[in-house]
Each structure stands twice: as structure tokens, then as C-alpha cells.
Design a protein around this nucleic acid. Sequence first.
DNA 1: AATATATGAATGAACG
DNA 2: CGTTCATTCATATATT
Lengths: 181, 181
Amino acid sequence: SHPLPVPHQPFCPIAPPGQVMTDEQFETLRRQISVYATICQQLVEMHKAIMAQQGSASGLWLGPSIPFDPSLHSIGHKLTSRQRWTPSQTQLQILERLFEQETGTPNKQRIKEITIELSQHGQISETNVYNWFQNRRARTKRKQQVGTANNGDSELDTDADVPEEKRNKVEGEFTNRVLDA
Amino acid sequence: SHPLPVPHQPFCPIAPPGQVMTDEQFETLRRQISVYATICQQLVEMHKAIMAQQGSASGLWLGPSIPFDPSLHSIGHKLTSRQRWTPSQTQLQILERLFEQETGTPNKQRIKEITIELSQHGQISETNVYNWFQNRRARTKRKQQVGTANNGDSELDTDADVPEEKRNKVEGEFTNRVLDA
DNA sequence: AATATATGAATGAACG
DNA sequence: CGTTCATTCATATATT
């Protein structure tokens, strides 16, 4: 991925002055900025590398010949990060309890109910609840797998694991399944 | 030696998600984004210049662009992982565009065509295309459902939705590391 | 600070 | 098609 193609694409759905932005618009904006931040970082790194290897070769290019507005320093990547939901102690307890009781992932309606109940103990959304159950289940399962079949192979990934014999069906399904003509 | 002071300071007066921005905050935001745009441009220009002058000097460092083409994304890195398809930036753009145009899920023939076109921008199969449309549609739909039957509690969507612009994350593995430097 | 881990969220693929 | 699973990404937190 060529880092240089600066996305000078037009801004996203941004609300006209005088109006409010939706959360979605805000999120889009945030990501847009994030992209710029990333590109800048990459370019800077690249530049450093070049300068380093170029070293004392040429006395040119010392320092930035491009004037930078001091105001730049006020930008940050705080904006590029969004805080994620964190269950409160109480919520977590309830969730854990439900996880044992419920059989499988709660359906939509159940999620709604749970969300309502949990919302009395802190900020929460249906999505949060849904994700929590999904993750909880997936990770429980994975841990069990790992417990039985162990390979002396540990990468850097924290929770990634190699399923190895799982992916048996790949192509072909598609054709048979839907597009068969 | 450190030519570009990329700011990493906390961001400013931005309204917390769920709240509205004032015109002033909006202005500030826009100004800051514009700054990023400028920085990117300058960096790109600087990089080009360096490459140009260095290119004639030493035969090394050819290519101002470290092989980072979007289409090649996710292929050569960890050979052991990366089992599932991931659309390249280009592919994603095309898909999004098609999603708006096409009415409903493309039929078999259409899928074939699309696949062929997209294959020029990276590894892809008909199954991938099919799945993508299915998911895209399903998630869009669900989002709308939730959006209407919602009593303003918080944004909720069960299986996640994607504001499309979302995939704006710049491709490249060192992105994350760099961002933290 | 740098690295490791826990975990919320995103998303390709599969299932009924 | 609507749901659910499996995997990966990204960030908050913990540890050294």
C-alpha cells in the first residue's frame, strides 16, 4: 500500500454550520482525520529513514525547508481514537450470570431486555450487549480448543489462534448454493 | 533531522459523541483537518523532491513508493495467517459504488463480471463478491431497523454496520506501530 | 516507555 | 435472506 496517495477526497457528510452532526457523521469525520494522521506518520517515518541512510551524503535538505504553522501542534490523535464501552462492575456481574444461564446467544428481544436492565447500571447499548455475548462465547470456546490441542507455535497475536483444520469449504459452495444455473 | 513535527497532542474542543457541536467547534475541527491536508501535501512534495534528487545521486532507493499498492494488500505478509479475503481500498471503493447503483444482490452473471473487474485490483473470487453484497445489504438493513424502532437511547446495531467511509484505514502493516511512535 | 494482554468492535464466511 | 460463527483489528489496561 502506497502511503503517498493522499486522499484528498471530499469530506464526508458534514453538517452545515448551524446544524448538528449525527454520531455517524462524527465518526466518519474522525476516521477521515485518522487517515491523515496515519499518512503523516508514515511519511515522516519514511522521510526519517531516507534522511538517515542519506546521512552525510549531501548537506542539502537539512531540516524542514517547509514552514509549518505552529498551530499544527494543537492537532492530535486524540480525535483519532474513540473510547470504547466498558462494562461497569455491576453490569459485568450480571452479564456473567446471564452467560451461564442463557442457552446460546440471546435473540434480539432478549438482548433488548438485557440492555434495558443493564442500562440501569451504566451507559450501554444493545450492540454492546450483543458484542459481549459474541465475544464471551467465542473466547470461551477458543480457550477450550487450545487447552486440548496444543502446538508449540505462539505468535505475537494475543487472541488469534490457528484453527488449522477448520476451513474445509471454500470455493464451489457459492456456485452450488446460490448461483447455480 | 526531524523534519516534520507531526503533532501528537490532545485534540481540542470537540463535543463528546452523543452531543452536538457548536459552530465554533465545528470551525476548529475543519481548520484542523485542513491542516492535516496541508501537512500531507507538503510531506508528499518533500518526499518526491528527495526521491528525485537522490534518485540521480545513488541508484538505490528507486521507487518513491515503497511497494504499498493497495491491491497487494494482505498477501505477502504473514504467510501463516490471512486466511480470509480482505478487499483492497480500490476494490472496496468499487464495491461501494456498485452497491449504490445495483438494485438488490447482483445475479450470477453480474457477479462474474464484477469479480473479473475487481480481480484487476487484487485477489478476489465470486464468492467474496457475493458475500460482500449479502453482508453489506444485511447490515445496512439491520441498521435501519434499529434506527427507526429506537427511542433515542443510544446508537444500536446488532451486528455492526458500516458507514462506508469506515474502511478508510490506511492499509499497511506498519501503520499501527507508526501511529504509536 | 516499551511490551504484553484483555477485550470491545468490525467483518468475511457459513448456516438454516 | 436473516442470523450466527470465526477471525481479525484496535484500544484500554496491566506488566516489566
